[in-house]
Each structure stands twice: as C-alpha cells, then as structure tokens.
Design a protein around this nucleic acid. Sequence first.
DNA 1: ATGGCAATGTTTCATTGA
Length: 262
Amino acid sequence: MKLVTWNVNSLNVRLQRLVDWLGANRPDVVCLQETKLEDERFPHEAIVAAGYRAFASGQRTYNGVALLVRDGLAVADLATGLAGYDDAQKRVIAATIGGVRVICAYVPNGQAVGSDKYAYKLAWCDAATAMLRAALAEHPRLAFAGDMNIAPEPRDVHDPAAWEGQVLFSEPERQRFRDWLALGLADSFRLFEQPPNTFSWWDYRMLAFPKNRGLRIDHILLSAELAKRCTAARIDRAARKGEKPSDHAPVLVELALEAFSG
DNA sequence: ATGGCAATGTTTCATTGA
C-alpha cells in the first residue's frame, strides 16, 4: 500500500496539480488537508476520472480534509472529527481501507505561542492523543497521517536556534508529538536513513524554498504492526516546484501488506 | 535548477497560514 499525506492549500487551486500527481505516482490512499471546500463543492468528477473515490469533510475558506481511495479498495467505518471533542473546524476524517485504519488530520496551526489559537492547538492535540489511544486498541494496523504543524526535532528545522520556542517548534508542541509516539506510533520518515535537511513545508516568502529553509511538519505515524511492514518513506520535494505549488510537499510511505502484494 | 507570498472572502484590503 502506498499511502500519502498532502496539504494542498486549496483543492480548488491545486486540483489539476493533484490529478497530475495521482497519475504519475498512483498512490492507494491520499490524505488531503486544507481543501477549503464545502462538501457540496468537492470535485468528485475529477477524482473519479483519475481512478479514485473521495470522502470529504470540509468547510469554506479554512481547514477541510479528505481521503482519496484508489478504485478497487474496500472502505469501511468512515468517521469525521475527534470523538469526545466538540470542534467546529473540519480537521479529521478516518476510514478503514484495505484493513488499515487511516486517520487523516489537519492539526491547528497555533498562530503564536501564548495565543488563544495556541491553547486550542494544545487542547486539540490532547484530544487527538485520547482518540488515538482508543483507535489503537481497536485497530492494530493504524496510520495517523497529516499536517501535524509540529517539527518534532532540531533536525526537522532549517534553523533550530532561530525557531526554538516559536510556534511549530515549541517544547509543549514537541511534547504532544512525543505523546503520540509514546502510544506506540512510529515516525515513519525516521525508520529509514534520510538526506539531511529534508523538509515538508517551505514559506512562500523570502526565497524559503530555493534556499531550502523549511520545516518537517507533515507526518505519517504508524502503529507497530505497520511500522514493521513499512518498506519506504520519503518526501516528494519536486512537487513543491513549478507554478502555483502548495507550500507543502507530499509525504509518502510504502507498506508491504498481503492484500497489496500485486 | 528551484524563485522573490498565497488563498479567501470580508474583495482593491483584512485575515490567516506556518
């Protein structure tokens, strides 16, 4: 199974780029964030034409998540939101796909340390921890994928000294990420040797991408059952190039599962 | 080689993102 997460920063703007990328990469499952589209406006026709089915939970202007599933894969138990946490913002969609519980998340940005949005981010992450604990008890094969808006370690930040304590790289946020690892989840990217200075997001401003001043804030966390079957993990930096890119690159894993041996 | 904010709605500026 090839599983991807990608913050597209408006599916409306990025649709053709997404369709082209699907054709070139043929993933089995794609987790999208920041679709910024109400469900009535979701471009199902284009996704179907590309050979996928889409399941969306969106809103206008902000947030919005979706799962794309390659034709032929069984989908069960679709769910949205964080159980037990009342959230008006559309940030989570989950389904069991080919026997794998896939949870697609768009973690709040947090804006600035100490702000109301930062407090919301930390509370949201705690609710996610509780949700993940319960989900892992039910689903040994679980993938938690999305824009986590947290750079877990200094090597995930182009200038860790400058970013230390800032939103996306503050200790309380990193602790939330470690809470997820403590549940038994693995950071799939770090299961393999990786090129140094590999990031998943670059600011549109200040030549950040050509200078590779980025952060690794998009992640695929895998349960132990999936981590031991993970054969590859990478970030498609090339997808950040060209005209009108998202500011995020797609993050991928490949999983060796019986049903996907062909 | 890459590119010098982008997307959206409140629309000719303000808000948000990260």
